[in-house]
Design a binder for these strands. Structure first.
Lengths: 204, 204
DNA sequence: GACTATACGGAGACAGTCTCCGGTTAGCAA
DNA sequence: TTGCTAACCGGAGACTGTCTCCGTATAGTC
């Protein structure tokens, strides 16, 4: 397995250590947020999260000034998983189509960690001021990696930009998320995208 | 020009006539809503709309119980324009690719009448209880019409469902809207979708 | 001119976001 | 242990937006 590292995660390290009680509350808040977002979606009440964590609202807002800071926090090991999955997608050197099918599937899985997450993450892609923006860059790099593999097989349609593919698949994730679509409804949409990415001569 | 009619608009007629003052307020509210949504996006304050229309909140909520009812109201002639544009897209019998480029462009234009509208409309597609759902069906039929033309040219890739195309283009509209993308950034995404829809033999 | 169905509109309940600051406590040093 | 202080806590409450209830006003009619 190729070692997985990411420069964009560097900022995780130098954060100065919290006081013990602060760390405890931080962890409780992240756990509570995970619960509430899972139940109520990305627009779940922040005060509810504070209440469920057993702390005051002030404590929540000190740790996480914005909702996005909180979302960013509960994606702690998300980046590593994304990178690992992109590595896994290319390691077996499967046919281009199959590689893309698998990759897009995990791509969408990562982007829809709870209801409403796809919209949040998509919005952060073009907003460098968002705390989640770094995560988007990780996802973008991972996507580049997979598409580079496809390009290397010679089956990538000329003129296809990875950035556009990323946006396209994010768009699919958005509508799938918003409509609560089952995977069976998502696959044909991805099929069209894949047909648009690959040269027809390569389409088995 | 082929006559344009749509059964889904039928409910516009039998609405019993409002009292004069009620009709006045209705119109003022729709105008104010158009303003506020244009300025602040689909999440603009409803009380602000009432205030700007010079009426109380109660009046607003009596006419439009939900936000979607209000959005639906300010899309009064939207359906007719959508249908007309789909007719226009096929009437010249342009090459398939060109037809789709033009149609997707107006499709996205219609769906992004103000910031945040794309998400609202996309969500309404799979939600029959939404007041906007009827509008989505109009859009869907219009889209079918254009794709039927493309199919008839023999250049539609086998297995492509119009429903999936509709969702895909809506997804593009969503990310474009969320990120405030210029048209130049949207075109390449649509290019990929079109490549996915058309047979390569037909791609000039 | 009077009557009534219809409509108005604002007070206020409710929910969510976010801040301020008096009180508490962890960690450390003596 | 004790005492000190920087760091942290948490809840009262200001603020914003949603939505309802109901006493008041008026358009349309006879």
């Amino acid at each position: 397995m190729v070692p997985v590292t990411s420069a964009t995660e560097a900022h995780d390290a130098p954060a100065k250590p919290l006081r013990a009680d602060a760390q405890r509350n931080y962890d409780k808040l992240v756990a509570a947020a995970r619960e509430v977002f899972a139940e109520r979606g990305a627009e779940g009440s922040l005060d509810e999260i504070a209440k469920r964590a057993g702390v005051g609202p002030g404590t929540l807002y000190r740790h996480f000034p914005t909702r996005d800071d909180l979302i960013d926090a509960l994606m702690r090991d998300w980046s590593a998983r994304v990178v690992a999955d992109s590595e896994a997608a290319v390691i077996d050197e499967l046919p281009a189509r199959e590689t893309l099918e698998k990759w897009f599937d995990v791509f969408i899985g990562h982007i829809t960690l709870h209801r409403g997450a796809a919209a949040k993450i998509t919005a952060a892609m073009d907003d460098p001021s968002s705390p989640i923006h770094g995560k988007c860059q990780v996802l973008s790099s991972a996507n580049d990696r997979v598409l580079d593999y496809v390009r290397q097989t010679g089956q990538l349609r000329p003129g296809v930009e990875t950035r556009d593919v990323m946006r396209l698949v994010s768009g699919v994730a958005n509508v799938a998320d918003a409509a609560g679509m089952p995977a069976d409804d998502v696959a044909p949409m991805l099929g069209i995208v894949i047909d648009g990415i690959l040269q027809d001569s390569a389409t088995s």
